[in-house]
Nucleic acid binder design. Sequence first.
DNA 1: GTCTATAATGGGATAGAC
DNA 2: GTCTATCCCATTATAGAC
Lengths: 245, 245
Amino acid sequence: MTDARQPPSASARRRPEAPSPPATAPAADTAAKAPTASRLLKEQGILTEAENHFAQFGFEGASLENIAAAIGISRHNLLYYFPNKEALYQRVLDDVLTQWLAGMEDLSHSDDPQQALRRYIRAKLRYSRERPNGAKVFTKEVIAGAPRYGKAIAARVGPLLKAEVRTFERWAREGRIARVNFTHLMFIIWSVTQAYAEQEAQFALLLGKPALTERDYGKAEELICRMVIKALEPDAALDNPPRAD
Amino acid sequence: MTDARQPPSASARRRPEAPSPPATAPAADTAAKAPTASRLLKEQGILTEAENHFAQFGFEGASLENIAAAIGISRHNLLYYFPNKEALYQRVLDDVLTQWLAGMEDLSHSDDPQQALRRYIRAKLRYSRERPNGAKVFTKEVIAGAPRYGKAIAARVGPLLKAEVRTFERWAREGRIARVNFTHLMFIIWSVTQAYAEQEAQFALLLGKPALTERDYGKAEELICRMVIKALEPDAALDNPPRAD
DNA sequence: GTCTATAATGGGATAGAC
DNA sequence: GTCTATCCCATTATAGAC
């Protein structure tokens, strides 16, 4: 953890504005809130830092003061870009969820169960590795009972999960996979893949390493895929009990 | 406490001889100062409430004021029983870890891989159901990078995990289970079983229920066991198990 | 053991400077 | 449009009085 936290110096931080305004189409949208590339850039910087702090301290524990200080701006400057703490938090979670749901849609559109699952697990693990703090913020929110983001989870994840389960059930009817409880299967896949983001510190600690390597993630992927795919291997012709959901 | 951190030297560990059990750390303070029964009772009440609050708000977010108020005492009365927030937090985590490690020791002492794993998964899921807040506090600590409890994890979990992996490797040598990465297998079992504590809110939300029922936990247990046991079925025809080393 | 005072922190609103 | 300064109020850790 780079803790090169520096006190917010009172020195004036004059950043020259973008010297050349986009002369191409300035009049396209007259007074419509121009996205202003520099603003988007700064927002992104705030969001990244906020993700780090929310991941480490949770919603209550994180402070706007520290988030702002970590990127060298004042708290009031931060509040200019996001109206309040809650809005900043919601944006962080929105972005994480958007990334995850993209991977889930891919899963539904495939037509080869094994390959689709392998791809999904691989993608989810890659997110965990590349953007662990997003997963951490999400899990902390869920642990607390999803008091601030529960509605968004129900609204955005619920429908996709149902579609996913329907896809699995179709595959099961076609005899391509065994009929297990597919909802719980998704819960389990989520849990495991996210654990490699959230608990990286613990896993690395127990492996005696400073951090997990690409090889470690490869081993995890191999084992997770093995577990999922073996569990979904059709039970041959032993018996095919139509299991109640 | 005891900084028994040892690098996982694969070289210095040649003999599979049964190692002397690495003296699990005695649970916190012993009977050094004869605590009265009423004091123990009050301590337990504080610990239970602290577990709830730390689970919901994290270390930074929880306040001694609220914990004390929830059980009808003053903050200063609480501070009489626990010197500060940090000590209270450590005690909560000590108690959780003690419970988990007991289940792990049982796993090592069994002689039937399948039965042992089923029992372990069932026990871990039962903990998740009966005492979800302990798991939540633990996971939140790990998510934050284990800044306050990392040493205890390394000292208490590490040795047991190694013993566990050695047991699995013996079973694999005997051809009773397939040879997978057993360390990651344990990581995965932990992640999944704990997820049913930490993420109960999310799972229930997505199932459209106010809370998970015993049936839900039963379904989870069935699927988790299936995944683990199928993944450990010896590959038989593919490559013959290495009978002797 | 309980109650109260103080200092520090943090979120938020408003006004105003570049 | 972007950023800073001042004020306000709630919360809380800590210390000390009773």
